[in-house]
Design a protein around this nucleic acid. Structure first.
Lengths: 361, 361
DNA sequence: CGGGTGTTATGGAACGCTCCAACAGCCGTG
DNA sequence: CACGGCTGTTGGAGCGTTCCATAACACCCG
């Protein structure tokens, strides 16, 4: 609690009213651009506003009007560029220009995540977007019961009041496996993303795809996680066995980055000794130095759709939930090639480099 | 504006009071953990709170108490990992556990930056932190006049009411040039960061260091910017001339990443044909695949100090401004080596890999 | 026993806005 | 000319809290 009062006090609507010689109600009408105000008064009020440097107190406005023109965004991990690219779409769009996006990030701590979500509600945010998260469905329900809510990324949430945007993880995993099989690989392993819903979907997609190719017996999953460190550490498990894989499908790009680092640290060459395919399509992966083959999601588009869903639900809280599922796309780059000893050491001609839609290069 | 009222109404302090059979004032006392309340009533109130699932309305609380327990953070660009690492320090610390950090990001648009800053004030944030920004000093002054303000990154801001945290850019630039000269380079160019204050300091530091080594005549500055794209595009200018440099000191890591990509795209090898040194010490640069020599700032520490300065100024708004300047440190990695044709193709033994303090590896 | 001192509890006035009911004018119309 | 229907303006009652002044009560002391 401040021991002293903050430096200078702002002008209030009363000051403006007095200065313009009108009632505070009239000032309020002008500020909110309401009709039935004479031009003379209108200009007088605006002049007073300018002269006093008046800015409305958003807190008081929010309390009185019962909406805040603020939407809260809870984001799992700002270190992962994927989430940042989703945020681009969320806030960049021309969707409501006069609502402010407030970001909070828990930095991976689930308890803090829950707490921050509640404080977003306490602050009377008009709506909340969850960008990558691990909250239990019960929490999701409770929040959605009270405020418009959109969930980006998680496909398992299907509830009456909750809109969702995500990609088809199973189909994406299938793309990755198809790509590697097409290059001639058979011993294709999976570095999983852990226990989250998304990780589970990708893992199951991998298993299904392997089975579809008659490779169920060589399928193998190594537990990792969605961070670069997790990928780095899991790399060791890829090369320690007697029958190491010739390719690995990693649960996400960020962790694939770590895995590549770990593999190269251990003396393996990518893709010479082992191919790596990621998932997400983060812009960073397209960098020459990295050039990671990946299953690209249309990240900014997902953000944009989320923003639209949210503002539409703020307009009409009662409407039926929409669940948007987008199709991912394979972006073949140089981290994947034929298995060691095979003829094809570069990607097949058919698989052009397809960056994610709206990708930043 | 919502056409319908949000789904369910929250319990208010009145409801709690009625449910517990006490006055709302008493409930307020209990919630704020004030003394002079009997244990019996205290437990009764807490029970009512639990049973009704009551949570105080932060907006009403803020209006009445004249402080919000919220601090706003304006961050220049979430794509640049440097800022995210500063944020880690800002919010991760154990500094006031019950204040919420609200992030806003302008995504590089200066007009939006200004607007978002104002809305942070409108929302009655108790304090504001600026993490990388390009606001004119006049704006800084106006904000600081009204609310506690701390500026991270910019050194040119020295004003009575404004605390700052930054590193010594001139010294850092000197470290970079010394390192390259030590490796045997003479034709060392600089990819500048544009017109910002930080960019200017680094550029001048470069020029001074070159002059100190008697290399003023071969010093050359190419205008780029602080983004990866800017670095990528500027790479062309490095190799188009008749006397291309053997080393380049890039204004920041993010742009150095782009420059490396551009150079390699044009067929140059790093460090074989040209050495690259960045500035910032972002964790990503330590990745094997990238392994960028850089001038490392203690990023999370800077964030932590900023948080402390801010909360201290919220306690006592009148106190004298503090300007903390931290010393950067060279992290020599494999993007720099001796010039083409020289004997030393690896870094000199003295320059051990020194990651930024608190670095994530 | 009167009058401090201290603890516990309460009503009500803010906080800075929005929004509704009310009203004064003014017009046209039956 | 009474009347309804517009336009333009205002006071005041909220919104859900905090916080101050005050009161009721117990207790101790001279």
């Amino acid at each position: 609690m401040p021991s002293t009062r903050p430096t200078r006090d702002r002008a209030t609507i009363h000051d403006v009213a007095a200065h313009a010689g009108v009632s505070k109600s009239l000032v309020s009408l002008v500020l909110r651009d309401q009709p039935h105000v004479s031009t003379a008064r209108r200009t007088a009020v605006w002049r007073a506003v300018d002269e006093l440097g008046y800015r409305p107190n958003a807190v008081a406005r929010s309390l009185a009007s019962r909406h805040s023109r603020v939407v809260g965004v809870l984001v799992l991990d700002l270190h992962n560029p994927v989430f940042v690219e989703i945020l681009d779409g969320l806030s960049g769009g021309p969707a409501n220009p006069d609502v402010t996006m407030l970001l909070v990030s828990a930095g991976g701590d689930p308890a803090r995540e829950h707490e921050l979500l509640l404080s977003l509600l306490d602050l009377q945010a008009d709506g909340v977007a969850l960008v990558g998260h691990r909250l239990p469905p019960a929490t999701i329900d409770k929040v959605a019961d009270e405020r418009p809510l959109v969930v980006v990324t998680r496909r398992d949430i299907r509830r009456p009041g909750v809109d969702t945007v995500c990609n088809d993880d199973a189909a994406g995993a299938r793309l990755a496996v198809d790509h590697l099989v097409g290059l001639g690989h058979r011993r294709i392993w999976h570095l999983s993303g852990g226990g989250s819903a998304v990780a589970r979907d990708r893992r199951r997609g991998y298993e299904a795809a392997m089975a579809a190719h008659g490779l169920a017996d060589v399928a193998h999953v190594v537990d990792a996680g969605f961070t670069d460190e997790a990928g780095f550490e899991a790399a060791a498990a890829l090369i320690s066995g007697r029958q190491p894989p010739t390719a690995v499908f990693v649960a996400n790009d960020f962790s694939a980055l770590g895995a590549m680092a770990g593999l190269e640290q251990a003396g393996m060459r990518v893709p010479g000794d082992i191919s790596v395919v990621g998932y997400d399509g983060m812009a960073l992966g397209a960098m020459r130095r990295i050039d990671l083959t990946t299953v690209a999601q249309p990240l900014p588009q997902m953000g944009r759709i989320a923003a639209e869903l949210l503002s539409s639900r703020i307009q009409q809280p009662g409407r039926r939930a929409r669940n948007v599922v987008l199709q991912p796309q394979l972006a073949a780059r140089s981290s994947s090639a034929g298995p060691p000893g095979s003829a094809t050491l570069v990607g097949p001609p058919g698989s052009a480099d397809a960056p994610g839609p709206d990708g930043r290069g």
